[in-house]
Nucleic acid binder design. Structure first.
Length: 476
RNA sequence: GGCGACGUGGCCGAGUGGUUAGGCAGAGGUCUGCAAAACCUCGUACAGCGGUUCGAUUCCGCUCGUCGCCUCCA
């Protein structure tokens, strides 16, 4: 598998540190507000990456942090007149609830900064002892000049920088580039005892401490949004490598930004769309399909048109599964021979599988992989058309095609169940309406037939006439 | 000012030195009482200008445009 590594700015063959195992750390949210659609992109992408790697036999450990102590949280608590702790807990719960509805499961480990204060202090102390950090006014700063590898990830030029983290009151930084790894507590702020007095973690230290704790040195993949490259990830590299001496991360992966009218979606711009609002209107799978429809490193425009297109794609997949299941049911019921030609469809399945994996192997090209899945959909439909005409299909072929399609979409995080088109037990009343419509049709009373269909539609179902008779499909 | 990315047919969006992306929308056709779903057919697109090459959308340079980072930010 080839992966684009931000560190080297090119695609590289992926070789995990430990054979057969992959450790992935993704920067999760700082919980001072509800997650928006932009935040959801890395969440979805790295879940997909983990799924793909697992499907290839790797044992994957996916770690996604929750930063629950931070300036913004404190600020929000002050605005609300509540405690930082309460704010963090509320939005951490909301984050888990909202992302949970995407149906991708949870990361293996979701560590919280406040539960790793000991590790963070320890890391700060090691940096200080090694001369890479110094104390001033109860805070501890990273001495950027001392670390030769600074800027190797982002490629920034430190002498051309426009800004730097401002000094805090009562503190004196040696250089404007230096950044806080530990912040002295101000009155009313959450704080913990430390060698430098009461304080709290600095900007980026929690990710370094927690990733090293759960994945060890030189772990495989560290991910997050493109906007985190500098300073967040650059500083993580500095902290980890200054403290440990070894390479921090082997492959850095950064997803592109979700945009709104060509502009990055972010809280500061004020153009965010909350995930929970999205989910009120759309099926969660629409968001996933929207994301995987483009390459993860590309910017992606959040618009009604693009979401509706994703919804149409979802519908095409859904119809394909519906058709597959109808055909298999027809075979079971003896309405269709099950021993028809297998070669045509089997060949298409093999081709689609090959293409799907080839695309995923190429820097997780989900858009290309999706094209392979659509190719399989077409092959199934063509095969079904022919099979209906000839009155025979291959039961085994259909099952293999279904399994392949389900597997591919499953890797992309999209699953279908019978609920999607049946909605459980059909009500007697509906079945009677279908029967009424059939009788009306046979009698040539099409006005009555159409009226029955309208009533069925009003009940949330659509009638589709097939060679095996009328079938009901759920509509949302 | 510095660093970086991108500009593909009506729209979204992959990709490649010469051979089909895919989807959505649209037109026609098949099937159907009509629908729905599906199938078939239909679009010589690669910002502009130079260069390298037998040949460039794909490589190089310049121009224009858009975006991201350099400040919290997925």
């Amino acid at each position: 598998m080839r992966i684009y590594n931000t560190l080297t700015r090119r695609k590289e063959e992926f070789v995990p540190r430990d054979r057969g195992k992959v450790g992935i750390y993704v920067c999760g949210p700082t919980v001072y507000g509800y997650v928006h659609v932009g935040n959801a992109r890395p969440y979805v992408f790295f879940a997909v990456l983990a799924r793909y790697l697992r499907s290839r036999g790797y044992r994957v450990t996916l770690v996604e942090n929750i930063t629950d102590v931070d300036d913004k949280i404190i600020e929000r608590a002050r605005e609300e007149g509540t405690s930082a702790d309460e704010v963090a807990r509320r939005f951490a719960d909301a984050y888990i609830e909202d992302t949970g509805r995407l149906g991708l499961g949870r990361p293996d480990i979701e560590p919280r900064a406040t539960e790793h204060i000991g590790e963070i202090i320890d890391l700060c102390r090691r940096l200080e002892e090694a001369g890479y950090a110094y104390e001033t006014g109860g805070s501890v700063y990273f001495r950027v000049e001392r670390f030769a590898g600074y800027v190797k990830l982002s490629g920034q030029k430190t002498d051309q920088m426009q800004h730097s983290e401002p000094e805090r009151e009562g503190e004196t930084k040696e250089s404007p580039l230096d950044f806080a790894v530990w912040k002295a507590a101000k009155p009313g702020e959450p704080s913990w005892e430390s060698p430098w007095g009461r304080g709290r973690p600095g900007w980026h230290i929690e990710c370094t401490a927690m990733s090293l704790k759960y994945l060890g040195e030189s772990f495989d993949i560290h991910g997050g949004g493109r906007d985190l490259v500098f300073p967040h990830h650059e500083n993580e590299v500095a902290q980890a490598e200054a403290a440990g001496g070894k390479q921090f991360v082997r492959y850095w992966m950064h997803n592109g930004m979700i945009t709104r009218r060509e502009e990055k979606m972010s809280k500061s711009v004020g153009n965010i769309f909350l995930l929970r609002e999205f989910l009120k209107e759309y099926d969660p799978r629409v968001l996933i399909l929207f994301f995987v429809g483009s390459h993860y490193r590309s910017p992606l425009e959040y618009s009604r048109e693009n979401l509706d297109e994703a919804a149409s794609r979802l519908e095409r997949f859904r119809n394909c599964f519906w058709r597959l299941d109808e055909l298999l049911a027809a075979v079971e019921a003896g309405q269709l021979a099950g021993d028809g030609d297998a070669a045509a469809l089997d060949q298409a399945v093999a081709a689609a599988e090959e293409e799907f994996h080839r695309e995923m192997e190429d820097d997780v090209n989900t858009a290309g992989a999706l094209a392979a899945s659509f190719g399989l959909v077409r092959a199934v439909n063509e095969y079904a058309e022919a099979g209906q005409k000839q009155g025979a299909v291959s039961r085994g072929s259909l099952q293999r095609a279904r399994a392949a399609l389900a597997s591919q979409l499953g890797i992309l995080g999209i699953e279908f169940t019978a609920e999607d088109y049946q909605g459980g037990e059909l009500e007697q009343e509906l079945l009677e309406l279908v029967e009424q419509r059939e009788q009306a049709r046979r009698a040539g009373d099409y006005a009555a037939a159409d009226a029955a269909r309208d009533r069925i539609r009003a009940a949330g179902y659509e009638v589709r006439d097939t060679p095996q008779g009328p079938k009901l499909v759920r509509r949302d």
